[in-house]
Deep mutational scan, measured.
Amino acid sequence: MEVRTIKVFTTVDNINLHTQVVDMSMTYGQQFGPTYLDGADVTKIKPHNSHEGKTFYVLPNDDTLRVEAFEYYHTTDPSFLGRYMSALNHTKKWKYPQVNGLTSIKWADNNCYLATALLTLQQIELKFNPPALQDAYYRARAGEAANFCALILAYCNKTVGELGDVRETMSYLFQHANLDSCKRVLNVVCKTCGQQQTTLKGVEAVMYMGTLSYEQFKKGVQIPCTCGKQATKYLVQQESPFVMMSAPPAQYELKHGTFTCASEYTGNYQCGHYKHITSKETLYCIDGALLTKSSEYKGPITDVFYKENSYTTTIK
Score class of each variant (00 low, 15 high):
Glu2Thr: 11
Ile6Trp: 07
Phe9Cys: 11
Thr19Asp: 13
Asp23Tyr: 09
Met24Ser: 13
Thr27Cys: 12
Tyr28Gln: 04
Gln30Glu: 14
Ala40Ser: 13
Asp41Glu: 09
Asp41Tyr: 07
Val42Asp: 05
Val42Arg: 06
Val42Met: 12
Val42Lys: 08
Lys44Pro: 13
His51Met: 08
His51Trp: 06
Gly53Val: 07
Asp62Thr: 12
Asp63Met: 09
Thr64Trp: 07
Leu65Met: 10
His74Gly: 08
His74Met: 10
Thr75Pro: 05
Asp77Gln: 07
Ser79Phe: 08
Gly82Val: 15
Gly82Lys: 13
Tyr84His: 05
Met85His: 09
Met85Gln: 09
Ser86Leu: 12
Ser86Thr: 12
Lys92Ala: 09
Gln98Thr: 14
Ile105Gly: 05
Ala108Leu: 05
Thr116Arg: 02
Leu118Arg: 04
Leu119Asn: 02
Gln122Asn: 03
Gln123Phe: 02
Leu126Trp: 02
Phe128Ala: 01
Leu133Met: 07
Ala136Trp: 07
Tyr137Ser: 07
Arg139Gln: 13
Ala140Glu: 05
Arg141Met: 12
Gly143Ser: 03
Asn147Val: 10
Asn147Thr: 12
Phe148Asn: 02
Leu153Ala: 03
Tyr155Ser: 02
Cys156Ser: 09
Gly161Lys: 05
Glu162Met: 07
Gly164Cys: 04
Asp165Met: 07
Met170Ile: 08
Leu173Thr: 04
His176Gln: 11
Arg184Asp: 00
Val185Gln: 05
Val185Tyr: 03
Val188Phe: 07
Gly194Ala: 03
Gln196Val: 10
Thr199Val: 12
Gly202Trp: 00
Val203Gln: 08
Val206Leu: 04
Val206Thr: 01
Val206Asp: 02
Thr211Met: 08
Ser213Asp: 14
Phe217Asp: 01
Lys219Gln: 13
Val221Ala: 04
Gln222Met: 12
Ile223Arg: 04
Ile223Trp: 09
Pro224Phe: 10
Cys225Arg: 01
Gln230Cys: 05
Lys233Gly: 10
Leu235His: 01
Gln238Glu: 00
Phe242Ala: 01
Val243Asp: 01
Ser246Lys: 00
Pro249Trp: 01
Gly257Arg: 06
Thr258Gly: 08
Phe259Arg: 00
Gly267Cys: 08
Tyr274Val: 00
Ser294Ala: 13
Ser295Phe: 08
Ile301Lys: 00
Asp303Cys: 03
Tyr306Ile: 02
Lys307Arg: 13
Glu308Thr: 11
Ser310Phe: 09
Ser310Gln: 15
Thr312Tyr: 11
